Amino acid sequence: MTPATAHLLAPCLGHVFAVSAINAVRIDRRLTGTPLGGTRAPHLEALMRAA
Rank of each mutant, 00 (worst) to 15 (best):
G38P: 01
G37L: 15
T5Y: 13
H43R: 12
L31Q: 05
L13S: 03
M1A: 10
S20W: 07
A50N: 05
A24S: 08
D28T: 12
L13I: 04
I27D: 03
T34K: 12
P3D: 01
G33T: 04
T32S: 10
R49Q: 07
H15M: 07
G14W: 04
F17V: 13
P35R: 01
L47D: 03
A24N: 05
R26H: 05
A10L: 12
T32D: 03
T5I: 13
G37V: 15
P42M: 14
L44H: 03
S20M: 08
T32Y: 05
A6G: 07
A51M: 12
T32F: 08
A41D: 01
A50M: 14
T34L: 14
L9A: 15
R30C: 04
G38D: 01
T2E: 01
T34C: 10
I27P: 01
A4G: 03
L8E: 10
A51E: 02
G38R: 09
L31E: 04
A4Q: 08
T32N: 04
R26P: 00
L44P: 01
A46G: 01
M1E: 05
P11M: 07
R30N: 06
L8M: 15
F17M: 12
T39Q: 06
G33D: 00
L13T: 04
L44E: 01
G33S: 00
H7C: 10
S20P: 02
A50D: 07
L36Y: 15
M48S: 08
L47Q: 11
D28R: 14
I22T: 11
D28E: 10
L44D: 05
A51C: 11
L47K: 09
S20F: 04
L13F: 07
A51L: 14
T39K: 13
